[in-house]
Design a protein around this nucleic acid. Structure first.
Lengths: 110, 110
DNA sequence: CTGTCGTACTATGTCTGACGTAGTAAGTGT
DNA sequence: ACACTTACTACGTCAGACATAGTACGACAG
């Protein structure tokens, strides 16, 4: 089973997280599980990577956070995407198309 | 004109360079020009990025170097891909396919 | 009722590839 | 004579990813 490290998608963790926040707020643990599921465990984001991404994005105004006690009585920090976050996400999607094109000039597929 | 920075393809500069060394040895300036041409100037590798990639890859045994005076009398450091470089390149191509799949789960195309 | 597991984080420090800035030097073109 | 292109080297900085460690609370098993 191939497992990829976060380093190879450096700069796209934020984008992946924003995608998962698009429709509703979420929190660290859930985001992490959803990424693993969606990628069939090919990519498992590291906790430190994830939480530092949240901090960075909050500072940059891409997300806002709020505390909320969950059903199970546990306290969680939820993150919510902002308008600025949505437009950042869209620009990263555009960038991705270009990046992909560029890289694929140098990739041999067999 | 969209220009992408090397940061978004972090870790794939080496792969791009190895691709260009596949059939024949080459040197910094030529590699740099060819990358710009091949990508329609969407990606222009920085000199420092390029030369430090050469150094790193030589240390890792992915390439070997030799001096040679060119037609124009200028001295150049040519780099040549090694067997190890070829197998590294192939593994990066495989990795790329996975990376692309993973990222695209989180990208909305319109 | 104790210890392990899963959940939900925070803190701290390290590493690496990319990049900014600068400088050298030799040949070419005007 | 001077600018420009070619062909590099040196040095220092930065940011994102990651390793390691620790905290804390609830559930659940033996």
């Amino acid at each position: 089973m191939i497992q990829i490290s976060s380093d190879v998608i450096r700069g796209y963790n934020d984008t992946m997280i924003l995608y998962l926040l698009w429709d509703a707020p979420s929190y660290g643990y859930e985001i992490s599980k959803r990424i693993s599921e969606m990628t069939d465990e090919m990519y498992n984001i590291k906790e430190t990577t994830l939480y530092s991404a949240f901090k960075r994005m909050e500072k940059e105004g891409l997300v806002t956070s709020f505390y909320q006690s969950a059903e199970n009585g546990k306290r969680r920090t939820y993150y919510q995407i902002t308008d600025s976050g949505r437009s950042y996400y869209r620009s990263k999607c555009d960038e991705w198309q270009v990046t992909k094109d560029v890289v694929e000039h140098f990739i041999r597929e067999e």
